[in-house]
Design a protein around this nucleic acid. Structure first.
Length: 720
RNA sequence: GCGCCCGUAGCUCAGCUGGAUAGAGCGUUCGCCUCCGGAGCGAAAGGUCACAGGUUCGAAUCCUGUCGGGCGUACCA
């Protein structure tokens, strides 16, 4: 970002920073210090005092004390004594005050206002910076077709879009792209349900959401949980032949259990069972609670497989004892069958048979989709458009833009070929029937790329996609705006690229963020507590109309009211989604976001509308009488100083990929503005010159608020 | 088990590459419309910065450990 700072050298505040740094550098070079320091370092130590009364820029002397071996306040005093009137005025400074270990510089108000306000109104202050940056691709949104678009997706869309706008403003060439999940199991599940289970009529509107419902019902029907309380396929009922505490570790229990014919020895970590009991047994090779069951030697006893607790079976929270099953459970039977749910299936149909039958049907649908022709494939094409149409409508509503759409379905074959290409080079290898990269030496585990059945995965496609981004689009940097939960996925993908010899891997960056949760917990389609986009839109609009706009019915043109409703609703949503650091989760609370007061989108829009209202009402004044020296009120100084600081905030936000910084700035600016105009009337200013000068400040403030909001993806309105 | 993220006022959150007395909003209490829009402004009350060590002139911020909450951890995306 150093280039940016050089670039914006003509902007007000930067000038002072450089001047002060040089001044201090000069003082340090001569007696009594005689020390050479880099001006750039000194400049970077400058900070903005907490209290505007303490000046515009502060130089802390703490770090110098180490070099000079003097106490910070002493250094500050000596530096302060060295600063002369001429030095100050040459730098455009009014005064300097020694405050303990700090040197507080006061910028001459009239000059700062004169350098800042006209630059905002007619100059380069708000203009996009020169395009000296990189070509950066920002991938975001990534919705799945055949699934619902809900409020969780809106954090991603708001963040990605705002990041793209910020990076563009600081001078990068930004290519915003979408990556559509149009292929895969979720699509097959949806179509499976539509074809074999759905009875009703297909609606003519909101067909994207309709598909989402099909998918979510399908998920339920295809989940073992809905058929049994113990959804652990492959875990069988075993009879305990003998059981005794381990000789050295009495907490452990060594048991002989019988499954049909054979008998095995198992060491269990806990007890609570006895000979004659029926227990749940998982054979080696299975995965229970994320761990693979194996054959291990525990203090001299060879243990084959494991016995499960009720917690591991999923039937209770108890993990202190081994689950004891009903005495009539048949040995060798699946536990899923033992705990089958009443009424879920006809009595003569086995839980696992039905489960496997349904999933086999889904697999058949999946293969048909990927075959590239046929009736199911045609239906896939058609339904995919239903979702795409809905996405387009949503993006129009939230005002997000993409230069290109990637589709998962166009990357499958390409990605598999890419893996095969590198199979011989030793980067990838076969393991347990699958092909992938062993990244355990990097602490990233094993990354499967080709499944046992020969099909590709999400990570596989991301390899091909990353290459395309650089090779076909010629970008310098590639940003992935994706949920935090996928951090490991991207670490694996980027590491694979690196191992494949792809240098651009280092130019790939995952921008993670935490999830959106509801006040009463996590959103999940299974709990049925997701808020769909259409529901949000409806709730937002009706709330905004009721709170802000209904009183204008009959007074304003209807089109203006409708447009205002849309913009305020969008501001409410966008601001709520962005006014938080990326790493912490957002509690979705519509009531709080749309509150008529406080740190919300509508508040900022209101502040902007007020600037416009003042401009309209004061009307034309003689701008020739503008005199910046007249802006001498304390609140005016504060406001001007804050305006001058705007670009610096944007640079920080772009550097940290954090739009929240822009939110905070916009809020503080609006707050300062409200406080000021309450105190200093424009219309009733004592003189025409003061009125004209204040009017310029109002205009400039409005422009900056509007600009900040535009980077958040929010459009202002002229009155509200 | 291992890894990542989070833990700041009753609630929701800021706190810039360590720096001056830890800040907002909501809620609570109290003021302010003969004055450019009260959708606003001002004030008050409210904090052992999860806990314990350490580094430093200085720690909410950096390091180590502990405790809470969330997520991830080979054939889902």
């Amino acid at each position: 970002m150093a280039a940016l700072r050089r670039d914006s050298g003509s902007l007000p505040r930067m000038q002072y920073e450089a001047e002060i740094a040089q001044m201090i550098q000069g003082l340090l070079a001569s007696a009594p210090f005689d020390t050479e320091m880099a001006a750039a370092d000194l400049e970077s130590w400058l900070e903005r005092p907490k209290d505007p009364k303490m000046g515009d820029l502060a130089f802390p002397c703490f770090r110098l004390s180490k070099v000079l071996r003097k106490a910070p306040p002493q250094i500050a005093t000596q530096l302060g004594e060295g600063i002369t009137e001429t030095m100050l005025s040459a730098a455009g400074l009014e005064k300097v005050v020694v405050a303990g270990p700090y040197l507080n510089f006061y910028v001459a108000r009239a000059e700062l206002a004169g350098a800042t306000i006209p630059a905002i109104l007619d100059g380069p202050f708000l203009a996009r910076r020169d395009a000296r940056g990189e070509k950066v691709m920002v991938e975001y949104s990534q919705p799945n077709t055949h699934k619902a678009f809900h409020v969780g997706h809106l954090r991603n869309a708001s963040l990605g879009d705002s990041i793209a706008r910020l990076l563009d403003w600081v001078g990068n060439e930004v290519v915003p792209v979408n990556y559509i999940g149009d292929e895969g199991t979720h699509v097959a599940k949806c179509l499976w349900h539509l074809r074999t289970q759905f009875q009703g009529e297909i609606p003519t509107t909101h067909r994207g959401e309709f598909l989402g419902e099909q998918y979510s019902t399908a998920t339920e029907l295809l989940s073992l949980d809905t058929l049994t309380r113990a959804p652990r396929p492959g875990v069988l009922v075993a009879e305990v032949v003998s059981c005794a505490p381990h000789a050295e570790e009495p907490k452990w229990h060594v048991a002989e259990v019988r499954l049909g014919g054979e008998t095995v020895t198992v060491v269990a970590g806990v007890g609570g069972f006895a000979a004659g009991n029926r227990v749940a047994y998982a054979a080696p090779g299975q995965r229970i609670a994320g761990k693979e069951v194996g054959v291990v030697k525990r203090k001299g006893v060879l243990s084959t497989g494991m016995l499960l607790s009720e917690a591991e079976l999923g039937i209770s929270d108890d993990n202190e004892t081994i689950a004891v099953l009903p005495a009539d459970a048949a040995v060798g039977e699946e536990v899923a069958e033992v705990y089958r749910k009443d009424g879920a299936l006809p009595a003569d149909v086995k839980v696992l048979d039905e489960f496997r039958r349904r999933n086999a049907e889904v697999s058949a649908v999946l293969q048909a989709i990927e075959s590239g022709s046929g009736e199911i494939w045609e239906q896939w094409k058609e339904t995919k458009d239903w979702s795409m149409d809905e996405f387009k409508r949503i993006y129009r509503w939230i005002d997000s833009r993409f230069d290109h759409d990637f589709f998962e379905s166009e990357l499958g074959e390409e990605s598999k070929a890419l893996v095969r290409e590198h199979l011989g080079t030793g980067v990838f290898k076969e393991s347990e029937g699958a092909i992938g990269a062993d990244l355990s030496e990097y602490g990233l585990g094993f990354c499967v790329l080709i499944k046992t059945d020969g099909t590709a995965l999400y990570a596989t496609r991301d390899l091909a996609l990353a290459r395309r981004k650089f090779d076909e689009f010629g970008v310098d940097r590639s940003l992935y705006v994706v949920d935090d939960a996928q951090t490991l996925h991207f670490q694996q993908v980027f590491k694979c690229l690196e191992l494949m010899g792809y240098e651009q891997a280092s130019k790939c960056q995952h921008l993670g963020y935490a999830q959106v949760v509801l006040p009463d917990g996590k959103m999940s389609s299974r709990k049925g507590n997701v808020i769909l986009f259409s529901q949000l839109e409806e709730r937002l609009l009706s709330k905004v109309r009721e709170e802000f706009l209904d009183k204008y019915i009959g007074d304003w043109p209807q089109e203006e009211i409708d447009e205002a409703a849309h913009r305020i609703a969008l501001a409410t949503m966008r601001y709520g989604m962005l006014n938080q650091v990326n790493s912490s989760k957002i509690i979705f609370d519509l009531d709080e976001w749309s509150a008529r007061s406080g740190n919300t989108g509508p508040y900022m829009m209101y502040a902007y509308a007020r600037t416009r209202s003042i401009l309209r009402q004061v009307g034309e004044v003689d701008s020739g009488s503008v005199d910046w020296a007249l802006l001498d009120h304390e609140l005016e100084s504060d406001l001007i100083g804050f305006l001058a600081d705007y670009p610096r905030n944007l640079e920080r936000a772009a550097e940290q990929l954090l739009p929240q910084i822009v939110c905070t700035y916009a809020y503080e600016l609006s707050k300062k503005f409200s406080r000021w105009y309450k105190e200093c009337s424009v219309m009733h200013a004592e003189t025409e010159a003061l009125k004209a000068t204040r009017l310029q400040l109002v205009d400039a403030t409005g422009r900056v608020i509007q600009h900040a909001l535009s980077l958040l993806g929010v459009a202002t309105i002229e009155r509200m």
